[in-house]
Amino acid sequence: MSLDRRAELGEFLRSRRARLSPEEVGLPDYGNRRRVPGLRREELAMVAGVSVDHYVRLEQGRTLHFSESVLDAVAQALRLNPVEREHLYRLARPWSGAEPPAEQQVRPGLRTLLDAAADVPAYIVGRGTTVLAWNALAAALITDFGALPPRERNLARLVFLDEGMRELYEDWAAKAADVVAYLRLDIARNPGDAGIAALIDELSTEPEFHKLWEQHELKDKTHGRYVYLHPVVGRLDLGFETLRLPDDLDQALIMHTTEPDSPSATALRLLATWARTSGPAPADSLLG
C-alpha cells in the first residue's frame, strides 16, 4: 500500500471524533437518536469554532492547504495529544514527493554509542522498524538477528509472524499494539518509503495486525518498559530509553535498563554470561 494522505486524514479524524461523547465537550446527548458513535461533523465544527463546510473539506481531504489556526482549533476540539497533533499537521500539509534513500546506513555516532553499551541490551532501529545493528545482549534477549536474512530483521515482522515472540513478551498484545501504532506514525513520516508500504501490506493479511491498524492509534518510540519471559533466564522486567540524533530522526538507538539489585538485574547478568558462552555469535561483523 502507498499512503493515501487524503484517505488517511479522513479516517484519522473520524476515528478521533468517534472517541468523544457530546457530554465530554459540553453538548446535549440525544441518546438512541444518534446513529453514529461520538461527535457528528457538525458538532465537532461547532466545538472547534470553524464552519461545517470548512471542517467537512478537511475531513474529506478535498485540499491539503489548511491554515494553522484551523488545524489548531480542530486539534484542540478533538483533544489530540502532541503525537496526534503532529500527525494531523503532517497529513494536512502538502507532501514534497521526495522519497527516502532505499538503503539505510547506521550513523557513526549511534554505532559508537551502541559499541559502548556492552552491559545492556541495545539495538538500532531504522525506518519501518528495521533492525540495523545490535549488540550481543540484544540478540540474546530478543532473537539471534545475525541468523536471520536481512529482510526478516524487522521488529514488526518478528512480533506478528514469529511464534516465539508471543511467548517472549509477557503482554504480547501490548507490544503488538505499540508496534502497529509506531508503524502508522512512521509511514506518515515517510510516505514515499516503498519498504514500509510493502511491510504493512504483508502484515495486513494477519487478522490481529489488521484489527489494530484499523484503530488508527499512534505512538512514538520514546521510553517505557516490557516484561520478557526468557527461555533461559526467566522473567526480566526491563525499561527502555530511545535516543535519536537531531539531524536524523529515522534512526533510533534503543537501550534497555533495569533497577539495580533487582531480580531482573540478576537475570540480566545471567543472560550476559549465557550470551558469552552459549548464546548467539557476536554481532560485530554483522553491524552495518
Rank of each mutant, 00 (worst) to 15 (best):
L78N: 04
T205P: 00
P82I: 06
A118G: 15
A194D: 14
A156W: 00
A197D: 08
A194S: 13
D178L: 13
A156P: 07
A177D: 15
S204L: 11
W172R: 05
S96Y: 01
Q105R: 15
P82Y: 04
W95G: 13
G146I: 01
E167M: 07
R107T: 05
W172V: 09
D201V: 11
D193V: 01
R107Y: 03
A98L: 10
V179K: 01
A198K: 11
T205L: 14
Y169P: 04
A133S: 13
R157S: 03
A177K: 09
R85L: 02
A188W: 05
E86N: 12
W213A: 08
L168R: 06
V74G: 08
R107F: 01
R127L: 03
L132D: 00
P191Y: 02
P101C: 14
Y89W: 12
T112C: 05
P150M: 07
F145C: 09
R153C: 00
L183G: 07
D72Q: 10
P82H: 03
L113E: 04
S204E: 08
T130N: 12
L132R: 09
G192A: 05
Y89L: 12
D178I: 08
A117Q: 14
D72L: 10
R79A: 08
E152W: 08
P207Y: 00
E202A: 15
L161N: 09
L114G: 06
R111N: 03
R157Q: 05
A75L: 04
A138M: 03
L114H: 03
D186Q: 07
L137Q: 02
I124L: 08
A73G: 04
L161R: 14
P101V: 15
D119T: 14
A136E: 14
H87E: 00
Y89C: 07
D201R: 11
L161M: 12
F160C: 04
G128T: 04
H87F: 08
E152R: 12
R184I: 02
M165Q: 13
A140T: 06
L199M: 11
L212T: 09
A136D: 13
L203K: 02
N190Q: 13
L80V: 10
I187G: 09
V179G: 08
A75G: 15
P191V: 04
P100E: 05
V180C: 04
E152P: 12
E163K: 02
H210C: 14
A122C: 13
I124E: 00
E170D: 11
P149L: 09
F160Y: 11
L141W: 00
D115T: 12
G146N: 03
A102S: 14
R127P: 09
W134A: 04
L148W: 00
E103G: 08
L199N: 04
A138Q: 06
S96R: 11
E170G: 06
A147C: 02
V125N: 07
K175T: 15
A102C: 06
R107L: 13
R85Q: 13
F145S: 05
A92T: 07
P100G: 10
I196T: 14
Y169L: 08
